[in-house]
Simulated scan of single mutants.
Amino acid sequence: MSTPVGFDELIHPSTRLSVVALLATTEWADFAFIRDSLSLSDSALSKQLHTLEEAGYLEIHKEGGGRKRRTKVRLTDRGRTAFEGHVAALRAIVEGAGPAATPGPPADDAPTTAATGAAQPQHPAETGR
C-alpha cells in the first residue's frame, strides 16, 4: 500500500501529533497548558515545539521576562493545513483497511457435517483407511 497524499512524517510521531491536535482546537495555547494536557516534561515539549516551529507549523510568542515569562503557541496556516491533510491521510489508511475478511461457507463440492460445518475428507487416503 502506498502512502496517501497528505501523510506528514513530521506530524506523525505521537507526541507531535498530540501537540498539533491540541493546538488545532484553539487560537493560542500556553506552554504550561500544553505540557500539562499531554503530561510532558518542559524539555520534551520544548524539543517538539522547536521541531514544529522550524517546519513553519507553529508560531511561538514569548511575553514578559524572568519568572513571569509566558510562552504562547499557535498553529500557523501551514501547520493547520498539514494537520488536516495528515488526518485525511490517516482516515484513508483506516478506511482502506476495511473490516477483516470473514471466512465464507465451504465450497459447494465439499461435503460438510451438519453440526460443525467442517469439510469431510473425500478420499479413503485422507481418512487413514
Rank of each mutant, 00 (worst) to 15 (best):
L45E: 00
R129Y: 11
T127R: 15
V5S: 12
T127K: 13
A119I: 15
A82F: 04
P13F: 06
F7G: 06
T127F: 13
L38T: 05
A89E: 01
S43Q: 00
L58I: 04
P124C: 08
T127Q: 11
D30R: 11
L10S: 02
T25W: 05
R78G: 11
F7S: 07
V5N: 10
L49V: 03
G64L: 02
A118Q: 14
H61G: 12
L49M: 11
T26E: 12
I11G: 02
G64T: 11
E54H: 10
G98M: 10
G79V: 01
L45M: 05
T3G: 01
G104E: 06
S14V: 10
F83S: 05
G117Q: 11
L17F: 14
K47T: 02
K62Q: 14
A88K: 08
T81M: 12
S18W: 01
H61M: 12
K62I: 03
K62C: 08
A100C: 12
L10G: 03
D42E: 13
H12G: 03
A32S: 14
R70Q: 13
L10P: 00
A115H: 02
I34C: 03
T26L: 10
H123I: 15
D108N: 06
P13T: 03
T116F: 13
A29P: 01
E27K: 09
L49I: 09
V20E: 00
V20K: 00
I93M: 15
P105Q: 12
A110W: 03
P105N: 10
H50I: 00
R91I: 00
S43K: 07
P4A: 06
T15M: 11
P4L: 05
D36K: 08
E54K: 09
T71A: 05
D30A: 11
L90T: 02
D42N: 10
E63S: 14
G96R: 00
D109E: 13
G6W: 00
A118S: 15
K68Q: 09
A125K: 13
P105E: 09
A114P: 11
R129A: 15
P121E: 08
G128K: 07
L22E: 08
G128N: 09
G64K: 05
G117E: 09
T3M: 13
T76M: 08
D8N: 15
P105F: 05
H61K: 14
Y57W: 04
Q48V: 00
T15F: 03
V20D: 05
K72W: 04
K68F: 06
P111L: 08
T3L: 14
P121C: 13
H61P: 06
P4S: 10
R16S: 03
Q122G: 12
R69I: 01
G6I: 06
V94T: 14
L49Q: 03
A110I: 10
L75Y: 01
D109F: 08
V20I: 13
E84I: 12
L58V: 05
H86A: 05
L40V: 00
L90V: 13
H123V: 15
L90G: 02
V73F: 02
F33S: 07
R69Q: 15
L38H: 07
S41Y: 00
E27C: 07
G64M: 04
D109Y: 09
P111T: 03
V94D: 15
V87A: 08
T81A: 15
G79A: 08
A21L: 12
E126L: 06
P106A: 09
R80W: 00
R129W: 14
L90N: 01
S14C: 08
V94L: 13
R35W: 05
P106V: 14
A24Y: 02
